[in-house]
Amino acid sequence: MKSVEIKDLTYSYNGVDPILKGVSLSLDKGEYVSIVGHNGSGKSTLAKLILGLLPFSKGTIIVNDLELNKKNLQTIRNKVAIVFQNPDNQFIGATVEDDIAFSLENMNMPREEMISKVKEYASKVGMLDYLTKEPSYLSGGQKQRVAIATALVRNPDILILDESTSMLDPNGKSEILSLVRRMKIENPNLTIISITHDIEEAYNSDKIILMHKGEIVLTCKPIELFKNRELINKYNLKVPFVVELKKKLQELGYNVTDKNTLEELGEMIWQSK
């Protein structure tokens, strides 16, 4: 089953210079996809278009077999959640519990159920002790955890993470990434689209999409991209440490062909001494 299908999507903010140029892609239900590419490559614009936040005139977006248009907009928005990068731009409620509940308010949920949902998700992101706190008492990382609870509490089919861990500390970051993974285990059909500069996260996803200047350059398994020296150099991408090390060792004359982990590479070095 398809989760998101995009055909020939073109978009321009000013009507002149296109930020997306004929983008087509197809994501299966339950895939964990990373979108990588330099700032300005069109990644965030693509995310906003999938959410129906920007009007587009050329191309089609199909979410859950529904075409994104005026009629289906609300249905689709109920199934797609996004967490943005900056925690200060997405806190709406007066307190943590208000903020998480806000997301449920249009769903006609009984009050008791709402309270228990809010608590459940606050606890999942480690913010249960902060339910009545105002955002000014929270650090950026804590606000971001609330934003993730707010996104997930509606049980979306698609979760878009727009660089949403980039402002968190390593603990906060791994906590959020493991929370997202846990959500995926609970709901294997949850499609995750992660816009990220974190090359280790991208390396561990199911699929990677490389964007450049408004076009999709490549869609493949992460390992395929990082093996491709030519593309890495052409698009000036960072590579995971293990890939970088492998290259250096090869230059030193080691035979690294069948070595893929740091442990294997390490063993090769100390055994050759």
Binding site: H38, N39, S166, M167, I199, N236, L237
Partner: peptide
């Protein structure tokens, strides 16, 4: 304070 937050690797 976090001078590279939110920038791509090149930036």
């Amino acid at each position: 304070d976090e001078p590279t937050a939110g920038l791509d690797p090149q930036g």
